[in-house]
Nucleic acid binder design. Sequence first.
DNA 1: GGAACACACGTTTTT
DNA 2: CGTGTGTTCC
Length: 795
Amino acid sequence: MYSDLLANLNPEQREAVTLPPVNENGQAQSALILAGAGSGKTRVLTTRIAWLIQTGQVSPIGVLAVTFTNKAAKEMMLRLSAMLPINTRGMWIGTFHGLCNRLLRAHHKEAGLPSTFQILDTQDQLSAIKRLLKGLKVDDEKYPPKQLQYFIAHAKERGQRAKELSVGDDFQAKMAQLYEAYDEQCQREGVVDFAELLLRSYELLKHNEAIRTHYQERFRHILIDEFQDTNALQYAWLKLLSGHDASRVNVSGMGSSAVFAVGDDDQSIYAFRGADVENMRLYEKQYHPMMVKLEQNYRSHGHILDTANYLISNNTDRLGKNLRTDAGHGELVRIYDAPSDHAEAAWLVDEIKALVSSGIKRTEIALLYRSNAQSRIIEHALFSAAIPYRVYGGLRFFERAEIKHALAYLRLLENPNDDTSFSRVVNFPTRGIGARSIEAVQDAARAQNSSLYLAASTLDGKAGASLGGFVRLVDHMREATRYNTLPETVEFVIQNSGLIQHYLSEREGQDRVENLQELINAATAFIAEEGYGQDATAATLPGENAPGVVEVSPLAAFLSHASLEAGDNQAQAGQDAVQLMTVHSAKGLEFTSVFITGLEEGLFPHENSINEQHGLEEERRLMYVAITRAKERLYLSHTQSRMLHGQVRYNMPSRFLEELPCDSLKWLTPKVKDARWGGTGNGNGGRSGSTWQDGYTRQREFGSNDFFDSGNERERPARQIGRVGSASTAVTRMAAPPRGNYPFTIGQNVFHTKFGEGRVTGLEGNDADARAQVNFKRHGVKWLQLSIAKLAAID
DNA sequence: GGAACACACGTTTTT
DNA sequence: CGTGTGTTCC
């Protein structure tokens, strides 16, 4: 019986899993599960599928489950096959892009694509755009490729083709025109970008009734993870497929499908890439789902959870949810105030050493930051202290240049019209095909409206000879590998293209050679995992039983795989290393100990988000995500000065620190140094001090150094004050009381070129480290390094 | 064809 | 300040 499936669920999880998918009128009943951080969301989603299948309400082929990452999809399949004796490989569980790819492969003709269509990743798309602009002789200063890329992606994510755009001005009109030209170029070359995968399959379903009806009637249950991260196109896609769209023709009278959406509006942190939380409200309105809230948290101890709840309650416009735990209060959340970014890093090192010697595994320690630029200084400190660390978010395996080169050759075997791939490797390794030849072939291709590959064989003269050689090389490789297995093909291509040889002769090429060899292994692993037989000539997409048999060669499948799943984005897995990552990439992860660093105004919340409500609330959700990563111990740190863009900046502590419950906090340093609370109260936007309720002195007596002997529980470490403007010459010294040798006095009115008028409220340090605290009329309280700041006395 | 130089740019990221 | 990209020069 299925009861054992439900045995380990709490009541709210069980309720969610067993929500009736059909209402009293026999119609499909959708559901919305508001799943807080660490509430067992994946478990509920997976168990729901298992429950539906085990109770005979649907067969595995009638389920469609959508996730945002391959990792989540794999996890789901893994757990599902542990619950039920079924082959999950055949099920439609995957990412939006993966599933759309599957759909388009199965119906490429109806979708207007060649069977060999290739997928452009972000890099490929950008180079395709650059090539387009060059071909059209468009000024890329006026129409920056990056901006056009963004323009196209966002239009597609809203479901709009170039022709449907309403253009306000000449610039937009030109952008729309370039968008159209880009789509034509892609069509000619037989390539699709990421957004195109979705838009094209949406249009396929919308315009092809037979296919639409087939899938609508097949997928009686549609489950979606991370619903708060869906964009407009994904929502429309879902609506169409679930039959909640006006275009549905209800042939068999089955009605619409039951949608089971799981999400957390408080963890919506991807608005910048088109995600729209409004979809949750829209869904509520249009699907009338039954709602279940998962508020029992299994991850964090009480103080950490209280901190998260308290913070997020500052957001307006939430669907409303409060996490609770049975784990007890646990430890207080620690806050550290560092004088500089160097000092912050030094403190991190000390604290990590202490944690490790207390028995915590390094992999259980996460160092989070708002932006990648912050990692360097931390890395430097960790490196110097010989603490192993791992940074998330670098180049992934399939994104490496040498791998992209090898894949470009492989793609040309499949689809010679792929001009992006052609351009990438036509002269790599160099084979004497210079700019002149490339221009000639581009002109010829334009004249004939053909691909570069086809145009190359029509050229004569010097360009014709060299390009002909390249075409023959590719043709030869295609011919020679016709009956090879995929790994054999990969090996043949990296050898015969000259890639291996090229990198072998390069001084720094050894890693690249190893990566190329790893690509052979990846191909071998792919064949094994995807269940292809030894016959490499053709294979059926596993589990496919859509109308028409899908024949996809292992090579084509491998190339799709390489585009859709760029590989691990974490280096050297397995080693016991401290984990460094942005808050964004920490989403979905958990650690025993978490450090959230750089909690300063302008950094976190980021200055670009500070001025509008939406931006600020998203930053707050980001902070919420960061806090809820911690299981047992959470540290929050901020610094008074930080090197950013080659300039030292003095930021106020993050406003988020003020939005935390004091009863759950513990300061490792006295807060009197905090400019935010040290000021006279104006310039703080009325946010000063009032929320604190603990025993610490909030108001600082300016100019005094009472904090050096105040009763903090931990000895203040030697302060490391980076000499402004040259981080490498940072000197460590004990902070000394001011000697009184300052160009300004407390109470004096001063003028700063950037911050305007203000009054000196504090002075400290000596000589090069002399600093003044100034309360600016318009910018609040700041500490300024006197050797740097352009500060003038006004009388 | 590759190194040296100049210059621009600087939130977050998955597919 | 540091990186990545594009250009120029040998």
